[in-house]
Every structure is written in structure tokens, then in C-alpha cells.
Design a binder for these strands. Structure first.
Lengths: 215, 215
DNA sequence: TTAAATTATTAACTAATGTAACAAAAATAA
DNA sequence: TTATTTTTGTTACATTAGTTAATAATTTAA
């Protein structure tokens, strides 16, 4: 029995996994081939105990008296995150953010394949952004269905976001990455990750002012 | 005595404030002028109790038997977040992301004034992006000092991010918004907000696969 | 064969979060 | 004016999540 099916894995753990992975990648790059939870803890800034516990949610990747093998742990974490597969993606909204995300994702993220960008603005339809075709938003649903797209990235204004999410969900995507500054509703089977940039900026403003009140 | 000085306000509360503010803005737009914690709770999806408790961290903005005045609550929350002031900003990195953030911030975020973009690539220096000058990265520190810049946005590759953060901190910014996929260190007096897009995308990949294992 | 290192796992602890309850205040209606 | 209703402010309680500590088991290396 797979461990991950036994107990629910907390959100905090999942959010730490990409971070572990980043540090492991770096160690790999440096040619380090084994590491103990203690050493890794110093590096990342977690306690050794937490690292062992986090990893043990998914199974015993380490070995007593030895530690963790950097390469295999990197691969294990990648597999847990599902980064050993490829994902077909569409972006909705060909504005500044949509374009930036298109470039960002297709250049830097092996495994995330941007197949098309959808737009309502007729002046943008037909253009190519980084070799990716900008298509008519009207064709979104049929395109997603026919090409078995896995994921949609919402880069529209907030007023359109829910409509986009509905169409994507209807057409069968498995996940939505939402950049519109609004809370959208999706069916339970669809995974949703929000990147609320304005919320992030606003909380930064708070912390800037709080620091100055020097508590 | 101001309430906010009494007790430390939890991070979760701060992170909810921009959300409250978004919904209040929407109510304002619809011409609603008062709302009870109960109604707001239904709207946002929190319990009435939590909303009252959150708001009471900062003082009593409501009135028994009446509820909360939408306009004044919106203004109060804005003030708590520090959104009643203006912030002078520089962006470091004029790549796709830097450009998108430059446009995003200067178009949509009143109060956040992008004063300059800094770059190492000589082919970009001297250009104007959305009326904002792209300057030589060498001049970052003196520019920030002379113009009393409040905030820096890091849109570089990960290898340069710490150097940028050091320069910004040295030059006296009060906050850093970091988009580079790396953990950077800043002095305590500098507020730091990370937007780790790749981490976010990777956790989305996890949830996509988890959903399919249909727990 | 023994000692040292280090994980896996259980247990204990701490902090954060959320909910409930109710007195106090204001608004409304009689 | 007075009673009733509404709704907050505030305290207390309960629950959950997250973290750290402790220890038994295993491996490595001397």
C-alpha cells in the first residue's frame, strides 16, 4: 500500500516539496551525491526532524547511517509532484501577463507545453507569440476537448475569469492556474492554484509600513 | 492606544485583508452602503465570527445593530494595508516578466509608481517600456538612494537575485517583491514578499495528479 | 565486532485557527 | 418613551495543523 493513500498529506508539506526540489537540484549541480537531513536542514533552514517527517509522508527515501542520495531523492520528489510527465497547456488572455507567462512557461519549464493562446481581441487573433498561435476565444472549448489539454492558465481581467474557468472545466482540463485577481469556483475534480499578484503586493505594502513602526 | 500595537497580528489575518478589500470594492461598485458580518461571510465564504474577529484586530469599525459601512470599512482596510500612500518602485530585469510587471503595476495599481527599470543587457538599456526608462544596472544603488525609492521588484534570473537584493537593501528600500525562483536573504528591516511562480506551478501539478487518484 | 551515524516512526508539544457564546450597544418599531 | 430586534465586540473554548523531540532500528565504517 502506498503511503500517500493512507493519510492525508498536509498542504504545508506539499508547498515545501518544490522548495526541497530546488535545493536538491542545486546540490546535484554541484556534484554532491549524498546528504543527511541535518545538512539539508542547515541549507534550507528547516529542522532535520521536519525534513525527515516531510519525506516520510511519501515513503522512506533515506537510509539509516547513510542519509539521502541526492539524485534519487530529486527524482522521487519530481515524481511525487508529477514532474516526470508532460502537460499540455492553453493560456487565456494574450495581454502583457499572458505573453510573459507564455514565454516563461515554454522557455523554462520543461514538461509544460503551451499549445495555444486564446483571446477575444480580434487584433491579436492570428498572431504568433513565441511560435504559439493566438486563437479566437470562441474556439477554446473545442480546442481543449480535441487536443486533450491538461491545464489552463487564466490571464484575463477579473470580469471574464469565471467564464473562462467554467469553459475550461467543462472542456475537461485537470487544473487551472489563475492570475486574475478574483476568486473563482471550479468543480472539485479540477485543481486550482491562484496567483493573486495584487494581494501579494498589498500585503507587502502592509509589511513595509509595519516594519517602520518598528515593533 | 492603537490596538495593532497591543498584540501581534497573525499572518493569516494580513493575508485575508486584501481579500476583504476586493469584496468591499465590489460592493462599493454595486452601490451597497452597509453590510453585516453575516452577509459578508456568505459572500466571501468565511464565518461571520471570523470576519468580526479579523476586523477587531485593528479596532471596532462596525456598529452594533447596524453592521459595517462599506465605504469606510474599505478605506480603513486600505489604510491598514498602507494603500493610502504612494510607493516609488524600481524593477530589476527588463525581460518578459519585468516588462509585464512594469505594465501591470503602472496601469492597474494606483499608488505604485514604477520610476525605472534596470538591466545589465546593453541592448535594452536606453529603451522605454511603457514610458519608463530602462537604465544600466550599475546605476541602481545611486538611483535608489537619490530618488528615495521605496520598493524593488526582482525580475532577474535566480543567480543574480541575491546580488540585486543586497544592492536594494543597501540602498535603502523598505520592501522587495521577488519573482526570481530562489530564496533570498534580506535584513530584518526590509520586508520581503516572494512570488515563486515555479513552486506554484509545481504544486498545481501535484494536485492535478492527486485528484486523478481520486481519493 | 563494536561504535558512530543517521533514518523511520511514534509521541509530545506548540501555535494557529476557527467557532461559539453572550453581554453591550445601536437601531427600529410600537 | 420603551421594548424588541439586530448586530457588533470580546472572551472563552475547541479543533486542527504544524513542529519538534525522543527513540528504536538499520547501516556504515573502523
Amino acid at each position: 500500500m502506498n503511503k500517500s493513500t493512507k493519510t492525508k498529506i498536509s498542504n504545508a508539506v506539499i508547498k515545501r516539496l518544490p522548495r526541497y526540489r530546488r535545493y536538491l537540484k542545486e546540490l546535484q549541480r554541484k556534484g554532491v551525491d549524498k546528504i543527511s537531513s541535518g545538512e539539508l536542514g542547515v541549507l534550507i533552514g528547516y529542522t532535520a526532524s521536519q525534513i525527515r517527517q516531510d519525506l516520510n509522508n511519501f515513503g522512506g527515501f533515506g537510509q539509516q547511517g547513510y542519509g539521502y542520495n541526492v539524485n534519487s531523492l530529486y527524482n522521487e520528489i519530481s515524481a511525487i509532484l508529477g514532474l516526470d510527465k508532460a502537460y499540455k497547456i492553453v493560456i487565456i488572455g494574450a495581454g502583457n501577463l499572458g505573453q510573459a507567462i507564455a514565454n516563461y512557461t515554454s522557455y523554462f519549464k520543461a514538461g509544460f507545453v503551451v499549445c495555444g493562446i486564446f483571446e477575444v481581441n480580434p487584433r491579436l487573433i492570428g498572431l504568433k507569440i513565441n511560435d504559439i498561435e493566438v486563437m479566437d476565444y470562441e474556439k477554446l472549448v473545442s480546442y481543449v476537448e480535441e487536443n486533450q489539454i491538461d491545464m489552463g492558465i487564466i490571464c484575463t481581467y477579473k470580469d471574464s475569469a469565471q467564464d473562462v474557468a467554467d469553459k475550461l472545466s467543462f472542456a475537461g482540463v485537470k487544473g487551472i492556474w489563475n492570475f486574475a485577481p478574483v476568486d473563482i469556483e471550479v468543480p472539485e475534480r479540477v485543481a486550482l492554484e491562484n496567483v493573486h499578484l495584487s494581494d501579494s503586493l498589498h500585503s507587502l505594502a502592509y509589511y513595509i509600513n509595519k516594519n517602520q513602526k518598528k515593533e
